[in-house]
Design a protein around this nucleic acid. Structure first.
Lengths: 225, 225
DNA sequence: GGGCATCCTCAGGGTGTCTTCAGCAACGGA
DNA sequence: TCCGTTGCTGAAGACACCCTGAGGATGCCC
């Protein structure tokens, strides 16, 4: 699965590359429209993530040009916060999906996976640890056979924990992946959400599924606790 | 696994080189931004450790330039203590991770290993000596089959002992690696922590896993005692 | 508009961890 | 054997870290 990211904000580009590679995807990055267009025409990608605001050629133009050249690789457009018009225009020029900045990794990954699936190749994945289970595609989670009623943020966090089960993940890593990339608030929010998840797991007589590793972060027990 | 260290403080650079090589990594050192940039473009490294304050070209500039040239080697930035802004700026220019000075050696190694792991090549490592075992990724340690409840500092120390098992390590070395490199407190702290570990190993009828070598330091028995 | 769910902030309190210190024990050389 | 040096031990204070409950802000649906 090869992904091309066309994005000029270096921090965002680096973050996307890092995050998507962690998902097992092969990622190339172009920092401007010209390079992006060239790379997209020269290499067969499975999906293209394309920012609208780019130095040189704009994302719209890149998208339109690719379609004119008969390249129908699924394109996910990244639009700026303000522009509501962008959505329509993105789809008009031939994009398959769009995402409004700022977004979080898990949302982006979900959209990318949806596009890949639409391409027909990828098999739906279900994440598991012990009797904890979640389906990233349908955004549902279960404990044993009963579905848990989790908020979007809680789901995103559980997904992140499940993808790195058994490992200690720092609060900063959690913030970087589960919250919008420009989140600058109180890291205490992570503690609050961990508590929320623990409450909803609701297994009073067993050990915690999410263990606190004082000074390092949290760890989801590999067997779900 | 090749690592490039770009750092102008010669003592720190030398320490890093020596320490990282002891971890089995191949280390090159550049003492200024110009050399660092050149080496990073000419050679394929698996990770780059990059100080911000450099003579000539700054670390920010080096990082930004590399990204512009399409080189996406993971970069770990070293930021000065004061600047909280530095963190954001480091990530803005395309760094993958940052560490605030002063840091301890084991923390640095942990971050480097995390970056290498994310790159997908490195296999998770478990350190062992006899029936002592620890997993740096999950920050857990076992004696036989039972998990030991160690504090972060104790874990860091055990990790250091395990990486140099069979060798005599001086108190000074332990301080330099397990504590922040500018730690100036009472060296007695090492004795206190050795005792803590011995207690938690809890093997009354066998010989000590950590032997005292009077006048020189301590040694972790290669077979765990 | 009113109710509701979600998200985030904040401050207080509890607890584990880190570090220091002083006294004691063990060791080794004279 | 004596004595200086080095290492061990237990206690205790300071501190950082994490948990918790409450409450305000926002957005959405009826």
């Amino acid at each position: 699965m090869r992904v091309l990211v066309v994005e000029d904000e270096k921090r965002l580009a680096a973050g996307l590359k890092k995050g998507l590679e962690a998902e097992g995807l092969a990622v190339d990055v172009a920092l401007n429209g010209t390079d992006g267009l060239w790379m997209a025409t020269e290499n067969p990608y499975d999906v293209i993530v394309l920012d609208i605001m780019l130095p040189g050629i704009s994302g719209f133009k890149v998208c339109a040009t690719l379609r004119e050249e008969g390249i129908w690789t699924p394109i996910l457009m990244l639009t700026a916060k303000s522009g509501e018009l962008d959505e329509a225009e993105a789809l008009d020029t031939g994009a398959d999906d769009y995402l409004t900045k700022p977004f979080s990794y898990v949302v982006l990954v979900a959209h990318i996976r949806a596009l890949l699936r639409r391409g027909g190749r990828e098999r739906p994945t279900v994440l598991e640890a012990g009797d904890l289970r979640m389906d990233p595609a349908s955004r549902k989670a279960w404990r044993g056979d009963t579905e848990m009623n989790l908020t979007p943020r809680e789901l995103a966090m559980l997904e992140f924990f499940l993808r790195r089960r058994g490992e200690v993940v720092s609060k900063r890593e959690i913030l970087d992946h589960v919250w919008d990339y420009d989140f600058e608030g109180d890291p205490n929010i992570v503690e609050v959400y961990v508590r929320g998840l623990r409450n909803k797991f609701d297994r009073p007589f067993e050990r915690e599924a999410i263990e606190t590793v004082r000074g390092s972060g949290y760890r989801l027990a590999a067997d779900g606790g």
